[in-house]
Design a protein around this nucleic acid. Structure first.
Length: 624
RNA sequence: GCCGUCGUAGCUUAGUUGGUGGAGCAGCUGAUUCGUAAUCAGCAGGUCGAGGGUUCAAAUCCCUCCGACGGCUCCA
């Protein structure tokens, strides 16, 4: 911002004509101010970045000079010609209004000439040495920013190899660790090598999984029937695994009172990040994780050391985070998302670390069974130097369990509420990394929320709390699955979803209308048992067999079976398996064989019925 | 949120220096009854993202807004 100060006997102006398309509305065509400090002001591009700070610094300068000259009258006069690098008119006007307001708060008499007009003006300069001054303001980042920078500076990035050696990220030889390299640089240097459209966005639309909803806020998605099926299956699977692990499933509200004593303290640290809603006279925020409800529940519970570790689980639908609009992408980063969140209340650090190991395994296994394998993820570990030194063995144990080198970020002192945190990150088609599973040891919130348990000596203590999402947000899991297939496609391989997640598992293609009834019978025969329905549909449209095959392939159908006279007579089928992991393309199968083949593959997963009509002729198109 | 690019039918897209928007796929109708990645013909489908402005005339030029994407920032 450029400021030109004139200590004047008077300043007067007259509005002439528009200088920009949409000038500030004004009904005052002329004005005059006696004994005023006139401040000609040009707001510059650079002020837009941190306008708050620009305003604060401008106020500082103006009041300093006003005090020196002992004037109470200030005329703010927008004057574009002081700079060749102007801010947008809108922003400039906002900043000027802000300055006007702040000066008035400080009991100055302030007038401001309207923005965006050519004006005639007369000014009488007093002519003493201090009567003409100019200042330039370059806004400096806010305190929190510099604090954060300091934090970044005081953290060390290393690669921890399986032999227990720490290597400087800059010097580490990443040969054979390509994804870890991409991930490490993404985290550390924020370098994003490639510029591509997110592959999964195209796929999620093409496969009728999910889509943007223009009528909602950004980052709130719609899910079509096939997408809903996939999402529901993953939700059910993760829940099943957490319950087997011992998670007690609960349900808690999605909105909380902003004035609640425990929550408000926590909230004030992150004021701009929530959706807020009003109900009568109270203000509520939408939860951004399951912590609140579970902690409040734990606060009101009577817990004995015998109950520990106590594991509480909720699949939040949804968690809300008002991410910056520029940060939203497809299913990767949302404002409303489905988050499995399992907390464990533990007695002490030993118990916390034991539990941490169990949940580490759980996370690894959940991702793997969903279809995100060890080779698809890179691990990051964040901790303090102190914790690392004292628990080297423990950390190395985790690294060996994973079976490959990891990225370690270490702080000199504890900055966040946790002492240890791991993340499994997925690196996508555009070399962007996103966290999936995570767990952390929280040593603050047990006390903050006043959660208590009684130890065996009858003493009341606060538990240490582990926060874990074994899979990460469900939407993000789908994103990872789609990106993984996109990477395969770029290598010339056929994309496919895991069989248990495929909306259609077997597509039957009758060669003519007369075989539709045989297809129906096929479906009945293969699903002639209680416990598990295979998702089979029938392409009964009036199209050529080639066309139907092509459409089935474009839909990534894992098993395609053409049904005609030969099959019916011989009662065997020659399925087209999408890849050789599912079945043998050269082999003929009986219905029983096919049934076994599919059931063996999917028996440990949740089961849902076909999300659409069994007949393709009776399906609407949700998306081209 | 900031900077930049983009926005034409459900989808993919053509549209020269401003002069009444074309196509393919999908949909509908009809013909075809078909053996492993697209059978043929016809019909219908558009406030050219929204609003404002310049002009005799705007999808095209200008402004504002919305959305998507890329980068920055952010990611408790």
């Amino acid at each position: 911002m450029k400021l030109l100060f004139i200590h004047s006997d008077f300043i007067e102006y007259e509005v002439k004509e528009k200088a920009i398309k949409t000038p500030e509305e004004t009904d005052k065509k002329t004005d005059r101010f006696e004994e005023a400090l006139t401040v000609f002001t040009a707001v510059e591009k650079i002020d837009e970045k941190s306008s708050k700070h620009a305003v604060t610094q401008a106020i500082e300068e103006i009041t300093k000079i006003a005090e020196q000259l002992n004037v109470k009258n200030i005329m703010l006069y927008p004057y574009a010609h002081l700079s060749s690098d102007l801010a947008s008119p809108k922003k400039a006007q906002e900043i000027l209004i802000e300055i006007e307001y702040e000066l008035k708060q400080k009991n100055y008499n302030v007038k401001r000439s309207p923005f965006g007009w050519y004006k005639a003006f007369k000014i009488s300069c007093k002519g003493h040495p201090l009567s003409e001054l100019s200042r330039e303001i370059i806004p400096v980042g806010e305190e929190t920013d510099s604090l954060k920078k300091e934090r970044k500076l005081s953290s060390y990035w290393n690669i921890l190899t399986q032999d227990g050696q720490l290597h400087d990220v800059g010097k580490f030889n990443f040969k054979g660790h390509e994804n870890l390299k991409i991930f490490s640089y993404y985290e550390k240097e924020k370098s994003r090598a490639e510029k591509q459209e997110p592959a999964h966005v195209t796929l999620m639309k093409k496969l009728e999984i999910a889509d943007y909803e223009p009528a909602s806020d950004g980052g709130n998605m719609r899910f079509y029937p096939k997408g809903r099926l996939i999402k529901k299956l993953i939700e059910r699977y993760v829940t099943q695994r957490v319950v087997e692990y011992g998670g007690l499933e609960v349900e808690t509200p999605i909105m909380y009172d902003m004035e609640h004593p425990t929550l408000s303290k926590y909230l004030q640290r992150f004021p701009a990040r929530q959706y807020q809603i009003e109900s009568d006279k109270r203000n509520f925020f939408l939860r951004f994780a399951a912590c609140f409800g579970q902690f409040l529940m734990a606060h009101d519970s009577t817990i004995s050391y015998k109950d520990l570790p106590l594991k509480m689980y909720e699949l939040t639908k949804y968690s809300f985070r008002r991410e910056q609009s520029g940060e939203l992408t497809g299913l990767r980063r949302l404002r409303a998302f489905t988050m499995p969140d399992v907390h464990a209340f533990t007695a002490d650090l030993d118990m916390a670390m034991d539990e941490f190991k169990i949940r580490f395994d759980l996370s690894l296994s959940v991702l793997d069974k969903i279809g995100i394998e060890n080779s698809d993820i890179e691990m990051a570990l964040r901790t303090t130097k102190d914790f690392y030194e004292k628990n080297k063995e423990f950390i190395l144990f985790l690294v060996k369990k994973l079976g490959k080198s990891i990225l370690v970020e270490m702080w000199n002192e504890r900055i966040f509420y946790f002492v240890l945190k791991f993340e499994f990150n997925f690196v996508d088609m555009s070399n962007k990394a996103s966290a999936l599973s995570t767990d952390q040891i929280d040593i603050e919130n047990g006390e903050r929320y006043d959660i208590k348990f009684t130890d065996k000596y009858g003493k009341t203590k606060h538990p240490l709390i582990l926060h874990c999402s074994p899979s990460g947000a469900i939407e993000r899991v789908i994103y990872a699955l789609l990106e993984k297939e996109a990477i395969k496609m770029s290598k010339g391989l056929k994309p496919i979803l895991p069989l248990w997640l495929s909306p259609t598992q077997i597509r039957l293609i009758p060669v003519g209308d007369e075989f539709i009834k045989d297809c129906v019978k096929f479906e009945q025969d293969i699903n002639n048992h209680e416990y598990y329905k295979i998702r089979i549909d029938i392409d009964d449209r009036e199209e050529s067999v080639s066309k139907k095959i092509r459409d089935a392939e474009k839909e990534w159908i894992p098993i395609i079976i053409v049904v005609g006279e030969k099959e019916i007579n011989k009662n065997t089928f020659l399925p087209r398996f999408r890849n050789d992991k599912i079945g043998d393309n050269s082999k003929e199968y009986k219905i029983k064989d096919l049934q076994k083949l599919v059931l063996d593959d999917i028996k440990n997963y949740p089961n849902e019925s076909l999300p659409l009509s069994i007949y393709l002729s009776k399906r609407p198109k949700f998306k081209g």
